[in-house]
Simulated assay, not measured.
Amino acid sequence: MEEHMAATSGTTGFTLNDLRGVLRKAAGDTDVIDGDIIDLTFGALGFDSLTMLEIAAVLDSEYQVKDPESVIQTGRTSREVLALVNGASGVGHVDNSVVIAAPYDLVWEMTNDVSSWPELFSEYASAEVLGRDSGTITFRLTTVPDENGAQWSWVSKRSMDKENGTVRAHRVETGPFAYMEIFWEYRTTAQGVRMRWVQDFHLLPEAPLDDAAMEERMNHNTVVQMARIKKRVEQRAGRA
Protein backbone atom coordinates (compact mmCIF):
# COMPACT_ATOMS: atom_id res chain seq x y z
CA MET A 1 0.00 0.00 0.00
CA GLU A 2 2.86 2.41 0.74
CA GLU A 3 4.06 2.22 -2.86
CA HIS A 4 0.64 3.28 -4.10
CA MET A 5 0.46 6.05 -1.53
CA ALA A 6 3.74 7.51 -2.72
CA ALA A 7 2.69 7.33 -6.35
CA THR A 8 -0.86 8.60 -6.37
CA SER A 9 -1.66 12.17 -5.51
CA GLY A 10 -0.17 15.46 -4.46
CA THR A 11 -3.55 16.71 -3.26
CA THR A 12 -3.69 17.83 0.39
CA GLY A 13 -6.56 18.74 2.67
CA PHE A 14 -9.02 16.27 1.12
CA THR A 15 -11.55 15.69 3.88
CA LEU A 16 -14.15 13.08 4.72
CA ASN A 17 -16.87 15.57 3.80
CA ASP A 18 -15.16 16.07 0.43
CA LEU A 19 -15.22 12.32 -0.08
CA ARG A 20 -18.91 12.16 0.88
CA GLY A 21 -19.58 14.67 -1.89
CA VAL A 22 -17.64 12.53 -4.36
CA LEU A 23 -19.56 9.41 -3.33
CA ARG A 24 -22.88 11.22 -3.62
CA LYS A 25 -22.11 12.40 -7.14
CA ALA A 26 -21.02 8.91 -8.17
CA ALA A 27 -23.65 6.82 -6.38
CA GLY A 28 -26.57 9.22 -6.01
CA ASP A 29 -28.12 10.68 -2.86
CA THR A 30 -28.24 7.73 -0.49
CA ASP A 31 -28.54 7.90 3.30
CA VAL A 32 -25.69 5.44 3.81
CA ILE A 33 -23.18 8.09 2.71
CA ASP A 34 -24.05 10.29 5.71
CA GLY A 35 -23.50 7.48 8.21
CA ASP A 36 -20.36 6.27 9.96
CA ILE A 37 -18.58 5.15 6.79
CA ILE A 38 -14.92 5.74 7.65
CA ASP A 39 -14.01 2.04 8.07
CA LEU A 40 -16.75 0.38 6.00
CA THR A 41 -15.61 -1.17 2.74
CA PHE A 42 -17.13 0.25 -0.41
CA GLY A 43 -18.59 -3.20 -1.10
CA ALA A 44 -20.40 -3.05 2.24
CA LEU A 45 -21.79 0.34 1.20
CA GLY A 46 -23.27 -1.32 -1.88
CA PHE A 47 -20.95 0.22 -4.48
CA ASP A 48 -20.33 -1.98 -7.52
CA SER A 49 -17.43 -1.77 -9.98
CA LEU A 50 -19.21 0.78 -12.18
CA THR A 51 -19.83 3.05 -9.20
CA MET A 52 -16.18 2.79 -8.24
CA LEU A 53 -15.20 3.92 -11.75
CA GLU A 54 -17.55 6.89 -11.35
CA ILE A 55 -15.84 7.71 -8.05
CA ALA A 56 -12.47 7.67 -9.82
CA ALA A 57 -13.83 9.95 -12.53
CA VAL A 58 -15.06 12.52 -9.99
CA LEU A 59 -11.74 12.41 -8.12
CA ASP A 60 -10.01 13.12 -11.42
CA SER A 61 -12.28 15.89 -12.68
CA GLU A 62 -12.92 17.79 -9.43
CA TYR A 63 -9.79 17.16 -7.36
CA GLN A 64 -7.19 16.38 -10.04
CA VAL A 65 -6.14 13.25 -8.18
CA LYS A 66 -3.23 11.55 -9.89
CA ASP A 67 -4.03 7.98 -11.00
CA PRO A 68 -7.51 7.89 -9.39
CA GLU A 69 -8.11 4.33 -10.66
CA SER A 70 -5.21 3.16 -8.50
CA VAL A 71 -6.68 5.03 -5.54
CA ILE A 72 -10.06 3.29 -5.75
CA GLN A 73 -8.46 -0.09 -6.45
CA THR A 74 -6.10 0.17 -3.47
CA GLY A 75 -8.33 2.02 -1.01
CA ARG A 76 -10.92 -0.38 0.31
CA THR A 77 -12.44 2.06 2.80
CA SER A 78 -12.97 5.81 3.12
CA ARG A 79 -10.08 6.01 5.61
CA GLU A 80 -7.72 4.38 3.13
CA VAL A 81 -8.86 6.61 0.26
CA LEU A 82 -8.32 9.71 2.40
CA ALA A 83 -4.81 8.52 3.18
CA LEU A 84 -4.07 7.82 -0.48
CA VAL A 85 -5.44 11.11 -1.79
CA ASN A 86 -3.67 13.20 0.84
CA GLY A 87 -0.39 11.35 0.32
CA ALA A 88 1.70 9.33 2.72
CA SER A 89 3.38 12.43 4.17
CA GLY A 90 0.06 14.18 4.70
CA VAL A 91 -1.58 11.79 7.14
CA GLY A 92 -1.26 11.66 10.92
CA HIS A 93 -1.79 8.45 12.88
CA VAL A 94 -1.60 7.92 16.65
CA ASP A 95 -2.24 4.58 18.40
CA ASN A 96 -1.96 4.22 22.20
CA SER A 97 -3.38 1.91 24.85
CA VAL A 98 -3.49 1.38 28.60
CA VAL A 99 -4.70 -1.47 30.82
CA ILE A 100 -7.07 -0.40 33.60
CA ALA A 101 -7.50 -2.78 36.55
CA ALA A 102 -11.25 -2.31 36.93
CA PRO A 103 -14.48 -3.97 35.77
CA TYR A 104 -15.47 -3.46 32.15
CA ASP A 105 -18.78 -1.76 32.99
CA LEU A 106 -17.05 0.81 35.20
CA VAL A 107 -14.33 1.57 32.67
CA TRP A 108 -16.90 1.97 29.92
CA GLU A 109 -19.27 4.16 31.90
CA MET A 110 -16.61 6.50 33.29
CA THR A 111 -14.73 7.00 30.04
CA ASN A 112 -17.85 7.46 27.91
CA ASP A 113 -19.64 9.89 30.24
CA VAL A 114 -18.73 12.92 28.15
CA SER A 115 -20.30 15.43 30.54
CA SER A 116 -17.79 14.35 33.24
CA TRP A 117 -14.71 14.64 31.00
CA PRO A 118 -13.52 17.93 32.58
CA GLU A 119 -12.97 15.92 35.78
CA LEU A 120 -11.58 12.86 34.03
CA PHE A 121 -9.21 14.66 31.63
CA SER A 122 -6.87 17.46 32.63
CA GLU A 123 -7.08 19.17 29.21
CA TYR A 124 -10.81 20.04 29.09
CA ALA A 125 -12.41 22.99 30.85
CA SER A 126 -15.95 22.08 29.77
CA ALA A 127 -17.95 19.47 27.89
CA GLU A 128 -21.41 20.49 26.70
CA VAL A 129 -23.76 17.81 25.40
CA LEU A 130 -25.65 19.23 22.40
CA GLY A 131 -27.75 16.23 21.45
CA ARG A 132 -28.29 12.49 21.78
CA ASP A 133 -29.65 10.02 19.25
CA SER A 134 -29.65 6.37 20.29
CA GLY A 135 -25.98 5.48 20.78
CA THR A 136 -24.66 8.72 19.26
CA ILE A 137 -23.87 11.92 21.13
CA THR A 138 -22.99 15.36 19.77
CA PHE A 139 -21.02 17.60 22.11
CA ARG A 140 -18.77 20.64 22.39
CA LEU A 141 -15.39 20.44 24.10
CA THR A 142 -13.46 23.48 25.33
CA THR A 143 -9.86 23.18 26.47
CA VAL A 144 -8.30 24.70 29.55
CA PRO A 145 -6.29 27.87 28.76
CA ASP A 146 -2.77 27.21 27.48
CA GLU A 147 0.36 29.01 28.63
CA ASN A 148 -0.69 32.04 26.56
CA GLY A 149 -4.25 32.03 27.87
CA ALA A 150 -5.75 30.72 24.63
CA GLN A 151 -8.61 28.23 24.66
CA TRP A 152 -9.83 25.97 21.86
CA SER A 153 -13.35 24.70 21.27
CA TRP A 154 -14.94 22.35 18.75
CA VAL A 155 -17.98 20.13 18.18
CA SER A 156 -17.61 16.36 17.85
CA LYS A 157 -19.94 13.45 17.22
CA ARG A 158 -19.41 10.15 19.04
CA SER A 159 -21.07 6.75 18.40
CA MET A 160 -20.73 4.11 21.13
CA ASP A 161 -21.21 0.34 20.93
CA LYS A 162 -20.77 -1.10 24.42
CA GLU A 163 -21.57 -4.69 23.42
CA ASN A 164 -18.71 -4.77 20.92
CA GLY A 165 -16.46 -2.47 22.94
CA THR A 166 -15.96 0.17 20.23
CA VAL A 167 -16.41 3.90 19.89
CA ARG A 168 -16.09 5.95 16.71
CA ALA A 169 -15.96 9.72 16.71
CA HIS A 170 -15.07 12.60 14.44
CA ARG A 171 -14.82 16.35 14.67
CA VAL A 172 -17.78 18.14 13.15
CA GLU A 173 -16.02 21.49 13.53
CA THR A 174 -12.57 20.53 12.28
CA GLY A 175 -10.72 23.79 12.94
CA PRO A 176 -7.07 23.40 11.78
CA PHE A 177 -7.71 19.80 10.71
CA ALA A 178 -8.81 18.65 7.29
CA TYR A 179 -10.30 15.76 9.23
CA MET A 180 -9.99 14.10 12.64
CA GLU A 181 -11.29 10.55 13.04
CA ILE A 182 -11.08 8.73 16.39
CA PHE A 183 -11.51 5.07 17.26
CA TRP A 184 -11.62 3.69 20.84
CA GLU A 185 -11.51 -0.02 21.61
CA TYR A 186 -12.12 -1.84 24.90
CA ARG A 187 -10.96 -5.42 25.46
CA THR A 188 -11.10 -7.47 28.66
CA THR A 189 -7.77 -9.10 29.62
CA ALA A 190 -6.49 -11.02 32.62
CA GLN A 191 -4.97 -7.78 33.98
CA GLY A 192 -8.04 -5.61 33.38
CA VAL A 193 -9.60 -3.66 30.52
CA ARG A 194 -7.28 -2.68 27.70
CA MET A 195 -8.43 0.71 26.41
CA ARG A 196 -6.99 1.68 23.04
CA TRP A 197 -7.24 5.05 21.30
CA VAL A 198 -6.51 5.45 17.58
CA GLN A 199 -6.54 8.93 16.00
CA ASP A 200 -6.25 9.53 12.25
CA PHE A 201 -6.01 13.10 11.04
CA HIS A 202 -4.63 15.53 8.53
CA LEU A 203 -3.81 19.17 9.24
CA LEU A 204 -4.61 21.94 6.80
CA PRO A 205 -1.62 23.67 5.15
CA GLU A 206 -2.26 26.88 7.13
CA ALA A 207 -2.23 25.05 10.51
CA PRO A 208 0.57 26.06 12.91
CA LEU A 209 1.84 22.45 13.08
CA ASP A 210 2.36 19.75 10.46
CA ASP A 211 1.12 16.17 10.87
CA ALA A 212 4.43 14.87 12.25
CA ALA A 213 4.61 17.56 14.94
CA MET A 214 0.97 16.96 15.87
CA GLU A 215 1.61 13.21 16.13
CA GLU A 216 4.43 13.89 18.60
CA ARG A 217 2.25 16.22 20.65
CA MET A 218 -0.70 13.80 20.65
CA ASN A 219 1.43 10.82 21.62
CA HIS A 220 2.83 12.73 24.59
CA ASN A 221 -0.54 14.05 25.73
CA THR A 222 -2.33 10.72 25.27
CA VAL A 223 0.10 8.97 27.60
CA VAL A 224 -0.51 11.67 30.23
CA GLN A 225 -4.30 11.51 29.90
CA MET A 226 -4.42 7.70 29.90
CA ALA A 227 -2.35 7.55 33.08
CA ARG A 228 -4.69 10.04 34.74
CA ILE A 229 -7.79 8.12 33.64
CA LYS A 230 -6.31 4.79 34.75
CA LYS A 231 -5.63 6.19 38.23
CA ARG A 232 -9.10 7.69 38.62
CA VAL A 233 -10.99 4.64 37.39
CA GLU A 234 -8.93 2.26 39.52
CA GLN A 235 -9.51 4.49 42.54
CA ARG A 236 -13.25 4.37 41.89
CA ALA A 237 -13.07 0.58 41.50
CA GLY A 238 -11.23 0.30 44.82
CA ARG A 239 -13.85 2.35 46.62
CA ALA A 240 -16.63 0.26 45.06
Score class of each variant (00 low, 15 high):
Lys66Phe: 06
Asp113Arg: 14
Asn17Val: 10
Ala83Pro: 02
Leu45Gln: 08
Arg76Ser: 09
Phe47Ala: 00
Val71Lys: 05
Val32Ser: 10
Trp117Lys: 00
Ser49Gln: 06
Asp60Arg: 14
Gly21Asn: 05
Glu80Gly: 04
Glu109Leu: 00
Arg76Met: 07
Val107Ala: 11
Val32Ile: 10
Leu82Met: 08
Asn96Thr: 10
Gly90His: 06
Val22Met: 13
Leu16Asn: 07
Arg76Ala: 14
Gly28Val: 00
Leu84Glu: 10
Val99Phe: 05
Ser89Leu: 11
Val91Gln: 15
Glu62Trp: 04
His93Lys: 02
Thr11Glu: 11
Gln64Asn: 07
Trp117Gln: 01
Ile38Pro: 08
Asp29Arg: 12
Ala56Arg: 03
Val91Glu: 03
Arg79Tyr: 13
Asp67Tyr: 13
Val71Asn: 01
Ser78Asn: 13
Arg76Phe: 08
Ala27Pro: 09
Ala44Arg: 15
Trp108Lys: 06
Gly13Cys: 02
Ile55Asp: 09
Thr51Gln: 05
Ala88Pro: 11
Leu23Asp: 09
Asp39Gly: 12
Ile55Arg: 10
Asp31Cys: 10
Thr41Trp: 14
Val107Phe: 13
Leu23Val: 07
Asp113Ile: 05
Leu16Tyr: 04
Gly35Cys: 07
Thr41Asn: 08
Asp113Tyr: 03
Val65Phe: 10
Ala56Ser: 12
Ser70Gln: 11
Ile37Gln: 11
Lys66Leu: 01
Thr11Lys: 15
Pro118Phe: 00
Asp95Thr: 15
Ile100Arg: 05
Thr77Gln: 05
Gly46Thr: 05
Ser70Asn: 02
Gln64Glu: 15
Ala56Asn: 02
Ile55Phe: 05
Asp67Ile: 15
Arg79Asp: 11
Gly87Gln: 12
Ile72Ala: 10
Asp67Trp: 09
Asp18Ser: 13
Met52Ala: 11
Ser70Glu: 08
Val32Gly: 14
Ser78Phe: 03
Arg20Glu: 09
Val81Ile: 13
Gln64Lys: 08
Leu59Glu: 11
Ser61Gln: 15
Asp36Val: 14
Asp113Met: 05
Leu45Ser: 11
Ala56Met: 08
Asn17Ser: 12
Gln73His: 12
Ser116Met: 10
Gly10Asn: 07
Val58Tyr: 00
Asp34His: 13
Gly35Thr: 07
Glu54Asp: 11
Asp31Ile: 03
Ile72Cys: 01
Gly75Cys: 06
Leu82Arg: 04
Asp29His: 03
Trp117Leu: 00
